[in-house]
Design a protein around this nucleic acid. Sequence first.
DNA 1: GTGAAAGCGCTAACAG
DNA 2: CTGTTAGCGCTTTCAC
Lengths: 355, 355
Amino acid sequence: MSRLTLEDIAKKAGVSRSTVSRVVNNHPNVSEDVRQRVQRVIKDTGYRPNAAARTLASQRSRMIGLIYPKTVSSVFADPYYPRLTQGIASACNQNNFTLNLFLANTIDEEEKIISRVLHTGFLDGLLVEAGQIGDQMIHKLTQSEIPLVVMGRPYNASGVNYVDIDNVNAARKAVNHLICLGYDRIGTITGPVDFTVGIDRLEGYRRALIENEIEIDESLIAYGKFAEEDGYHAMKILLLQKPRAVFAASDLIALGAMGAVKEAGLRIPEDIAFVGFDDHPQLKNPGLELTTIRQPVRRMGIRLVETLLDVIENGPAVARSVIMETQLIVRESCGAKQMKASILGSASNSVDVTT
Amino acid sequence: MSRLTLEDIAKKAGVSRSTVSRVVNNHPNVSEDVRQRVQRVIKDTGYRPNAAARTLASQRSRMIGLIYPKTVSSVFADPYYPRLTQGIASACNQNNFTLNLFLANTIDEEEKIISRVLHTGFLDGLLVEAGQIGDQMIHKLTQSEIPLVVMGRPYNASGVNYVDIDNVNAARKAVNHLICLGYDRIGTITGPVDFTVGIDRLEGYRRALIENEIEIDESLIAYGKFAEEDGYHAMKILLLQKPRAVFAASDLIALGAMGAVKEAGLRIPEDIAFVGFDDHPQLKNPGLELTTIRQPVRRMGIRLVETLLDVIENGPAVARSVIMETQLIVRESCGAKQMKASILGSASNSVDVTT
DNA sequence: GTGAAAGCGCTAACAG
DNA sequence: CTGTTAGCGCTTTCAC
C-alpha cells in the first residue's frame, strides 16, 4: 500500500511538497543537489504517487481506453484482435500508459460503456475498432471531445483519425499475383461485406481483374465472413464453378477453403492455387505453406497508440490517417515456386511492391 | 465532458452536495421525494460523477487489473486467452467494474507493471495468469495486500486464491475414454511441462494407464507446447512408435498432429484415434470433428471476476479455490461413433461424467 | 433525513 | 530555485 504521501517524502527530504512534486514530474526548476536528495528518499522509501489524486489535480490520467464494439467482440478470438491488442498493450507499456479494455457483447453494454467512458472523465483518449457499417458507436464517440483514433477506416471517415492498411490495393496485389502466374478463372471468397475491410478487399479483387481486362464472373465470387468455416462452406459452393485459383480475404478463410479442396480430392496448388490475407504467424499450417498478404498487425497496434498520444498531446486540429504497408509473401499455395524461372521472375517482382 | 459537478446538481435540485452524493450512491437516508427530485436533475443533465475524485475520496476505484506475465503474453493469440478475456470483460461490465489490461512482453515490463499496479493504488484487485513454474510474478504480488485471484492453479498454491479446472482428472477422463474404446498403444502429446497445466494433463494420462494396469511406455509420450506446430512435429516423432490412439493436451496440438497423420497417409480414426483438450468453438475443423474435453473458458473468466469481487468485499481471510467442471465431448476423431453398439454403450457412459 | 466541513493526495499558479 | 496556497470533485463523519 502506498501509505506514503508527498508530504512524507517532503518532510524526510527536508523540502516542501511542491519540490517533491517537481522532482517526481521532472520539472526543470530544481537544483541538482535537491533533486538528488529527493530522489534518494523516493527510492529508499519506494514512494509512488497516488494515481487518483494525480488525475484529479492534473486532469490527466495516463489511461486510454480500447473499445471493441459488439459486432467485433464476438470474433475477438480471431488471431487478428489478440495480435492488435498485444501491439497496443506493448505501446502503452512503452509510454507508461495504462490500457482499459472494453468488450461489448450487447447493445446495452455498448451504451453503458460509451456513457462510462465519455462522462466519468478518467480516460485521456480512446481507441475504437471500426466495426460494422452503420454502427453508431463511433458516431456517438466523435460527438464528445475525447481524443479518438479508430482502428480501420470507418465508413464515413470524414474528420476522424484512423490507422489502417490499404485493403483495396493489398487485395489487388494479391489477385495480380495470381494473374501474373497465368491463372484463369480466379475466384474469391470475401470477408463480411458489411465491414469496410470486406468491401475493400472485394473491390481490390475486382480492380485487378478489370485492369487486366478480365471479365468479372459473379459466380466466381463467394461471400463469407472471416472465419474458417465460412471459407469451408463458401469453397464447397465455389468448387462447382471450377476455379483455377482463389483469393481468400483472410488466412482463416483460406484454411477452411483449402480443407474443402482437399476433401474434394484436389491438390493445392496443382489444381487450385490460393492466396490468403493476414499472415498470422500462429496459423502456420505445417502441411501447406500459404501465400498471403502480410499486414503488420502488431505494429498497427503500436501506431494506433502513438497516433492517439499525438492527438492527446497536440490536439485534434488535423485529422490523422495512417496507412500501413502490406507485403505479398510468396509460399507454396500459389504455385509460383513450382513454375519455371521466367514466370517466377515476373512474379517475384510483386513481392516487394508495397501499397 | 463531465463539466458538471455534484455542486451543480445540488444547486439545481435545491439540496446540499451530500444529499446528491447519497442519492448517487444509493444511501438509505434520503427521503423519497428528495431522491426523486435529485434523480430527475441527474437524468436531465446527464451528470456522471468524476471517477478520479471518487476514487481519491473513497479509496475504491471499481477497477481491476488483468495481468498476463511474459511467459504467456507471447501466446496470447491462443484462442484460450481471448476467450478467457471475453469472460472477464463480460463480468466486469456486468458488475460495473473497469478492466485494466497488462500484457508483459519482457521481464522489465513485468517489473514496471508490478510496481505500477501495487503502489499507485488505483486498482481494487488483480487477476493474474499463473504462468510458468518459477515465475516470480505471483510471489511478488502476494507480498502486497491487494486482493488477488490467480487464473489456473499456481505451482505453490498455499493460501492463494485461484480458479481452475481439474486438469489431472479431465485428462484421465479423456484417456480412459480411449481405453474404454479398446485401443492399445495410446500415446500422448503433452503441453509445456514447465506449467502446472502441462504437468497435470500428463499426470492424468499416466494415472489412466496405471488404473487400467497398462504399462507406461515412455516412447509413447511426445513433448510439446500447446501450439499447432508443436503437435505436428511431435506427431512426426510419435508416428515412428505406431500409436493406435493419441491424447493431445490441447485442440491446437491435436490439429497439428492430425495434419501430420494425414500427411503420412493414415486415416483418423481408423488408423489413429484422437482426443483433444479445450473444445474451442472457433477451432471447428469442418473436415474432422474432434473428440475433446470441453472446459468452460468463458465461464471461468466470469468466475474469476466474481471470486475477486468476493475477496475485495469480504476480505482474504479464507483462500478461495474454485474448480470448474469439464466434459468429454464425443465426436468423430475417437472412433466411438463408428464402433458397434455394445462398445458405444460403455463409451457413452463417460460422456456425462464430469470432474 | 439533511447540511456543514474536513479531508483524500496531488498539481499548479503565484510569490518571493 | 523554492515554498505557500488554492483547489481538483467527491465521500464521509459529525452535528442538527
